[in-house]
Amino acid sequence: MTMTAVTEEIKTEKAAAKSSSGKTLWLLAPGVLWMLLFLVLPLAMMLYVSFWTQTTFKIEPTLTLKSWITFFTSDTYLGALWTTVRIWLIVLAATVVVGYPAALFVGLFVKNKTLQTVLLVLCVIPFWTSFLIRVLAWRPMLGKEGAINMILMKIGIISQPIEVLLFSELSVIIGMTQIYCVFMVGPIAFMLGRIDPSIIEAAKDLGAGFWRIFRTIILPLSMPGVVVGAIFVSVMVLGEFATSAALSGRKVNLLGNIIVTQVGSLKWAFAAVAGVVLTILMGAVVAALLRVVDLRKEL
């Protein structure tokens, strides 16, 4: 009697578990629907359109490889692809070089949690102004008669203004590093803040000096933060067009700029090709970065 009662109970419990997991699946429905409608469908459409036939004034749904062939035989487009990759790598390295020490300071050496939060909020302050203003503010800073050149000339370090500072690849890199650095600092500071201080004390106690501890303990434990930051920065830099348009004087053409121009002149098929190439590039970069660290294990 008791036995049957117990089995009955287990059965009801199982049924309850089943129905509850069925119910919880509904929580996913809005997200899945949203992604299908506004991510997967447009991506498929973009791929489809990239094979359409483009003439000067209109586009027809007749499948052809022409746009793809044009893209991969044109120096302009391949050059843009190469510039995108080069600027991405330089900006990524620059954000790590600038961001890691800052994150190390905030996440590890600032013991006070309130101060830590305040410092991280300070990093975000540039985002309180609009993107355009932030980018354009570099012009009076970097220009031929800009602040930097004026100061350097005043104190007599240079006699001629440095022209390469603005409307060059350098200005694009400076602008992008400044804007995206915070996306590197945040995740790294978060990971560093999670390191138990007694682990570092233990390493000290076992006889290791600071650099040794940094290399063997702090750096490996903060790698997930570096990878997450690198993913943020990569995705944003690879898709960039505004910074390069505003700071390069149209000398630096990224894939994003190509897409903007092509769309502007209604060349949808070319724009779609560039879009597909850019999407594949981002996918490959994110996949490669995720290879570096097993985020599921670390986070």
Binding site: D196, S198, I199, E201, A202, A203, D205, L206, G207, A208, G209, R212, I213, T216, I217, P220, L221
Partner: peptide, 30 residues
Amino acid sequence: NIGFVFQNFALFPHLSVYDNIAFGLVNRAV
């Protein structure tokens, strides 16, 4: 050269048991 055993053990979470034990020998400054 004074050893310290922490209350929460403070093991290096990214290293194996063997590497945790070898840490001091390999990495000490002196």
